Simulated assay, not measured.
Amino acid sequence: MDPRILDALFGLRGKVELGLGPSNRLLERLGRPELDLKWVHLAGTNGKGSTLAGLEALFLASGAHTGAFISPHLVRFNERFRLDGQPVSDIQLMAALTHVCALLGTRPEALPRATEKALGASFFEISLSLAMVIFKEAAVDWALIETGLGGRLDATNALQNPKASVITRIGLDHREYLGETLAEIALEKLAILRPHTPSFLAPQTPQINQLALDYAQSRGLDLQPCPTLEGWDLGLNGAHQKENLGTALACFNHLCPNQLDEAAQKEALAQVRWPGRLEYVNPHFLIDGAHNAQGLASLFQYLRDQHPGKHILLALGWMTGKRLFEGLDQSGLDLTWQPIQGGFQGAEPNPEATLSTFGPCLPTKVLSQFCAHLPPQFDLIVLAGSLYLLGEFKSLKL
């Protein structure tokens, strides 16, 4: 796709303003394409992408044709729109953009001169519309749709008639938009649940589990707690993936009963891959999109389990305003912290001030040297934090 058009689209990522109005208007102009699709809605703080990847793998193993809408992308915009597990082509994306732009009274070539106010739609709302056009044109059997932020007022909640809803792990994140407490954030995400729609709840803290069940019961909603998947060889690293893929399996078995026997399900989930989630670049270099306190806790537990006693360099970069370190337990780990200042959107301008143990801040490009030549005093380097940071790292094409 023309880089100028992409830059113009990215330029529409202004101040976050939650609400369903623009998406509803766009979807109406498109003729409500979601009503011709079977689709699953996913919300949660952590684990949406991994759970989606598990569902995608199971649907594909059953012979279904799948579409998936995710955010953010790591390297290419196309990654946000997947058909049968692969990013769409530039040709498919450009055709969808031409169609959506026509409904907005413009052309893709004119986007560099457009504004969000003039278009009446944001970057994310346009992206969601592109997904709907692509999935309808491809006649997918199942579409998997991730929320962008929260749930109640997220653009994806304007979509009608989901066949299932999934709530992954809920934690403290995006408090400036969703609320300061875990309960407030949970209620925002639980608002994607719909009457007469089966819903699936990943394992939660006791407080959130009870809140979710009470929420569903008071509204007559069908919410099913999901078990942790024990004893299976999974394609994703980390104990928390037993929760994510267990949730995916419970949802799939409800939607497609008897489509796959247990052996086929195990094979599908053993093949799941999701970039940037406990992904090894080489045996001594690990990257992970742990971008909030809950994510860092899962990363630390994985390091305790899989790399006990190792001296680890943790290179960390995060978005402005993130409170990553509240209640964080790093016991049992031999960590040296290294802040990373990337060029990614909204990067913390002075991350080394957050922890006194941090050394001087380094630019992302220095990581290529770490990857090629492990500093001798470390057994393992871990690059973690914002998914935008991981995308910047992957763009280095090492």
Results as ranks from 00 to 15, higher is better:
residue 256 C to T: 04
residue 289 G to R: 07
residue 264 A to V: 09
residue 256 C to D: 00
residue 279 E to Y: 11
residue 330 Q to E: 14
residue 266 K to G: 10
residue 262 E to L: 12
residue 361 C to N: 09
residue 334 D to R: 15
residue 323 R to N: 14
residue 324 L to I: 14
residue 313 L to N: 08
residue 291 H to V: 11
residue 273 R to S: 13
residue 256 C to N: 05
residue 276 G to K: 14
residue 343 G to C: 11
residue 315 A to T: 08
residue 298 S to E: 13
residue 346 G to M: 09
residue 283 P to W: 04
residue 281 V to Y: 13
residue 290 A to E: 08
residue 330 Q to S: 14
residue 316 L to S: 01
residue 338 Q to G: 05
residue 278 L to Q: 08
residue 360 P to Y: 00
residue 307 H to P: 04
residue 304 R to I: 05
residue 318 W to F: 15
residue 312 I to Y: 02
residue 296 L to C: 12
residue 333 L to E: 06
residue 277 R to V: 10
residue 284 H to E: 02
residue 267 E to V: 08
residue 326 E to Q: 13
residue 323 R to I: 03
residue 301 Q to H: 13
residue 345 Q to P: 02
residue 271 Q to Y: 01
residue 319 M to P: 02
residue 311 H to E: 14
residue 342 G to L: 02
residue 329 D to A: 04
residue 274 W to V: 14
residue 354 T to V: 10
residue 326 E to V: 13
residue 346 G to W: 07
residue 259 Q to Y: 15
residue 302 Y to P: 01
residue 336 T to D: 04
residue 269 L to S: 11
residue 275 P to R: 11
residue 337 W to R: 04
residue 296 L to P: 10
residue 333 L to K: 10
residue 296 L to A: 10
residue 298 S to L: 10
residue 357 T to F: 01
residue 305 D to S: 09
residue 356 S to T: 11
residue 307 H to S: 04
residue 303 L to R: 01
residue 310 K to Y: 00
residue 284 H to V: 12
residue 275 P to M: 04
residue 350 N to R: 15
residue 318 W to G: 00
residue 273 R to M: 08
residue 306 Q to T: 15
residue 341 Q to C: 13
residue 295 G to A: 02
residue 331 S to L: 08
residue 311 H to A: 13
residue 360 P to L: 01
residue 362 L to G: 05
residue 276 G to R: 11
residue 356 S to E: 05
residue 296 L to E: 04
residue 292 N to Y: 06
residue 359 G to K: 11
residue 346 G to T: 05
residue 264 A to L: 11
residue 345 Q to K: 13
residue 292 N to W: 07
residue 254 H to A: 10
residue 328 L to S: 07
residue 339 P to S: 04
residue 307 H to R: 11
residue 262 E to F: 02
residue 265 Q to I: 14
residue 283 P to G: 06
residue 323 R to G: 07
residue 349 P to W: 07
residue 264 A to D: 08
residue 323 R to P: 02
residue 257 P to V: 06
residue 297 A to F: 00
residue 349 P to I: 11
residue 258 N to H: 14
residue 336 T to E: 03
residue 364 T to G: 02
residue 288 D to E: 09
residue 313 L to I: 09
residue 276 G to L: 11
residue 313 L to M: 12
residue 338 Q to D: 01
residue 296 L to D: 06
residue 332 G to S: 07
residue 327 G to M: 03
residue 342 G to H: 05
residue 331 S to Q: 14
residue 281 V to L: 15
residue 322 K to L: 02
residue 361 C to T: 15
residue 264 A to I: 08
residue 350 N to S: 14
residue 304 R to V: 07
